[in-house]
Lab assay of single mutants.
Amino acid sequence: MAAGGDHGSPDSYRSPLASRYASPEMCFVFSDRYKFRTWRQLWLWLAEAEQTLGLPITDEQIQEMKSNLENIDFKMAAEEEKRLRHDVMAHVHTFGHCCPKAAGIIHLGATSCYVGDNTDLIILRNALDLLLPKLARVISRLADFAKERASLPTLGFTHFQPAQLTTVGKRCCLWIQDLCMDLQNLKRVRDDLRFRGVKGTTGTQASFLQLFEGDDHKVEQLDKMVTEKAGFKRAFIITGQTYTRKVDIEVLSVLASLGASVHKICTDIRLLANLKEMEEPFEKQQIGSSAMPYKRNPMRSERCCSLARHLMTLVMDPLQTASVQWFERTLDDSANRRICLAEAFLTADTILNTLQNISEGLVVYPKVIERRIRQELPFMATENIIMAMVKAGGSRQDCHEKIRVLSQQAASVVKQEGGDNDLIERIQVDAYFSPIHSQLDHLLDPSSFTGRASQQVQRFLEEEVYPLLKPYESVMKVKAELCL
């Protein structure tokens, strides 16, 4: 049975990233139509530049190519590739079939990587351009969430054990800070992308030097003109047959890092959902379990974690691919890159769409948070109580021993009897502590235990987050809708 299948058929496997999760716009960027249309555009740009620099290419040939950029006979191309065992030459023939007058000058002087690699770089750039505003929107939604809850005390956790208090907004800023680093890295790697350009079979530009009869300047002009037509500021000066596969490492490393950030955020949300302090959106008709109707599973956060793990592992592909590119190139890269580049971007696209949807509907339960604080705060307040007693004339050592005994009794009630923490009640009825009984409410005010959390939130948002989001103001209103 021949390899390949009808990918629109229910009898043929289709990647869930495309069929179930990723956005239509990201799927289109990695589609065959987008790819092969870009090949034709690159052939047109090459012909236009070659004509401008004096090669015998007519206006009629150029116009014929322009008129057929979208006229792609995919069936013919597939048949040609089956016959020739070469995808680029299959599309040269297919393009030439609908451009008979231009057929002889299509791909003039070029090698397969002229269309293959340059198209990949265009796709990487455009895919990054799709991700950047999506990530900015996630940051914006979380920034709104953090600002609104900047002063809401909550129990902090280290080692997932109760620690000092923080605020809900401050905790959210930990998430935002990681995503801001990801946004900066995505922008950097996007701006650092260079075009492969017009380089020939081993990167020496020998074929173009021959076409222009040894004119170095025209060869350099050709490279520059096509690079500018493709919208790049610069091209690699040095290439082998391909652009260095280190570029793929750079791009997928940034995406993998984004995956790590999203995994951490969504894990926190899942843990908070278990504590009943916070939940992701839950639709009115949504079913959490087929057997347990009360369940409210954090399905979206779980999906993000599941896909983020996949995204983090994909960076190993370009690392290994770059390491086995012998001399000017081997074909070890080809099949692998067809999979890992598309999957990385479709996965990143999915987790950003999902995280935006989550961040637009996060639900906080202040009463649950308050109750958990009441359970733990008495123990945390013991040092403040000791200091207040010393100020009232008591002995630190005597007070410490009193607190120690009462704390152990209260802990026994919590752990052995399943009761509430009654340390404060014990202190309130103990005559030894009568000098500070009137101060206990103040000493137990949760806001006095959150330090500068709310001020940190305000400063972080104003100095770091809002300036970073400013270039994306025009796209901030787009909502994230999930079908599944």
Rank of each mutant, 00 (worst) to 15 (best):
D178C: 07
P133G: 15
R374S: 10
K35C: 12
H400S: 03
P293V: 02
Q164H: 05
Q456C: 07
L252T: 14
D191S: 08
W326E: 04
Q428Y: 09
E481K: 14
V364M: 08
I105G: 08
R40V: 00
M89E: 00
S151K: 14
A322H: 12
H159W: 01
R374C: 06
Q458R: 12
H310V: 10
N68I: 06
N71I: 11
D248G: 02
P446K: 04
S23Q: 08
L69K: 10
G451S: 03
S23F: 08
D6K: 13
R396P: 06
V168A: 07
T321R: 02
L155Y: 03
V478H: 08
P378Y: 04
P293C: 05
L255T: 11
S290M: 02
E425P: 08
L211V: 15
D445V: 11
Y21D: 00
Q428K: 13
Q285T: 14
P10D: 11
Q408P: 04
E462S: 13
K66L: 10
V414C: 05
I106A: 07
I427F: 12
H7S: 13
E302L: 01
V198N: 09
W45P: 02
V368K: 05
E464I: 08
S438Y: 11
V457L: 06
Q408K: 14
V29Q: 07
A77G: 14
S306D: 03
D59S: 12
L319Y: 10
E81D: 08
E481W: 08
R33E: 13
E80K: 09
R20P: 00
R37I: 14
G116Y: 01
L186H: 11
K470F: 13
C27A: 15
F95L: 08
S23V: 07
A143G: 14
S447M: 15
V324S: 11
Q184A: 14
L275S: 13
W39T: 09
N353K: 13
H91Q: 15
E280H: 00
V364K: 01
I265P: 01
R37A: 12
D178F: 00
K224E: 11
H217S: 12
V251D: 02
A110T: 10
D430K: 04
Q458L: 13
M389T: 02
T202M: 07
L275F: 07
L362N: 04
H7T: 15
G5E: 15
I269E: 00
A49D: 01
D441C: 08
F449S: 04
V368M: 03
C340F: 14
I351W: 02
L152M: 12
T94E: 14
E343R: 06
W39N: 07
S395M: 10
V364Q: 04
V92E: 07
I403V: 13
M312A: 06
Q184K: 11
V198E: 01
E228R: 12
Q325Y: 03
H91C: 10
L174Y: 08
A78Y: 13
T94M: 14
T354L: 15
N353F: 05
H86L: 00
A335Y: 04
F195G: 07
C173Q: 04
E462D: 12
E50I: 05
R459G: 13
M316D: 08
A77C: 10
M292Y: 01
E328H: 01
V138I: 14
D32Q: 14
K284Y: 14
L46K: 01
L165D: 00
I269A: 04
L131P: 04
H107V: 00
H159S: 03
V29C: 12
A344H: 05
L108S: 15
T330L: 03
D223A: 07
G231M: 09
D398G: 14
K470N: 14
D87W: 04
D398S: 12
G54E: 13
C27L: 13
Q409T: 09
T58Q: 12
L443I: 15
E79G: 12
F145C: 09
L193A: 11
Q286M: 01
V324I: 09
Q397A: 08
L319C: 00
E50D: 02
N71R: 11
S257D: 07
Y466G: 15
R234Y: 11
I176V: 13
F379T: 05
C304Y: 01
I72V: 10
P378D: 03
M380Q: 07
T52W: 08
L482Y: 07
D420T: 06
L377H: 03
I339R: 03
T201G: 08
R309E: 02
Q210K: 15
A348K: 01
L108G: 06
A453H: 05
R190C: 10
T321I: 10
Q356S: 11
Q63D: 05
N353D: 12
A77K: 06
S395K: 09
P56V: 13
C113L: 05
L461A: 02
S151Q: 12
A335M: 00
G393R: 07
M181L: 12
V413R: 12
Q375I: 07
D332Q: 00
S454G: 13
F236C: 06
S19M: 06
I369R: 04
A260F: 04
L440G: 06
P24H: 09
I427A: 06
D268W: 03
Y13E: 08
R234Q: 11
L17G: 08
G156Q: 04
R372H: 14
G214K: 10
F449T: 03
T167L: 01
A392P: 07
L131R: 00
P153K: 03
I122M: 08
A2E: 09
L314V: 09
